[in-house]
Nucleic acid binder design. Structure first.
Lengths: 115, 115
DNA sequence: CTAACGTACAACCAAATGGTTGCACAACAA
DNA sequence: TTGTTGTGCAACCATTTGGTTGTACGTTAG
């Protein structure tokens, strides 16, 4: 999944197929590589569930699958959530320390970006 | 960047270093591969800016860099934004068509998840 | 029917990837 | 000092990746 997004060409294909559904050859026309190469990128994206192919006559129309994109974003959002939880824990620890030491209020670290 | 997140081991290292800073060998101890292999994963993550290494004695302490994670998430969020914009355009187009046809209110497509 | 188009797929190739072992070296412990 | 620990790095290897060309086949156009 992240692997499928790891190439600039593939991210560009995702971006373009978000904007509008289009055929594989229409996509291939804009890249400086063979049709077969683009076709393979499309296959990788399809296997990852990031795009969906649909047959129409002799063409295969490609559109992005926003569900998968949302899934990837959610995973990263969860990492950020873990980070916030860690910062909160450190804050608690710091608060407990200062409470017991009762006077040392010198080198407090800023809470780092919270949103 | 997405490439750095493309391996389960590396995503796990990111997750663990979000929770707390730890040395490279502490990380390596929990994976079924050589220290050198883990060290290379750490290097990949460091080059991608996803983690930060800090020297302390003979150890190298590793912590996650939440800024980069946020950056990746923002890119995916932007894709979702493009999707919403597209859906909005299609809605407008559909509205215009029904307005000109003045009666055909049959096969309306559901707006798909908007949030 | 025949030609052109859009796609799929196989074979092939160079480079990158993910793993290994071995060695060197600084920092710490005895 | 000597030994152990933590790290970095190079060399090597099998597999995957990202690209190529060529072939085959269904669909559309003339």
């Amino acid at each position: 999944m992240f692997h499928a997004l790891a190439t600039a060409t593939r991210r560009d294909i995702v971006r373009r197929t978000i904007e509008r559904e289009q055929s594989v050859s229409a996509l291939a026309a804009d890249y400086d590589m063979s049709f077969a190469a683009v076709q393979k990128h499309v296959t990788v994206l399809e296997d990852a569930g990031l795009i969906i192919k649909r047959a129409e006559g002799r063409e295969r129309l490609v559109r992005a699958n926003p569900e998968m994109i949302a899934k990837a974003r959610a995973l990263l959002a969860r990492y950020e959530e873990l980070w916030r939880a860690r910062v909160a824990r450190l804050d608690d620890l710091f608060a407990a320390e200062t409470r017991s030491e009762e006077s040392t209020k010198s080198t407090q670290e800023p809470p780092a970006q919270g949103e």
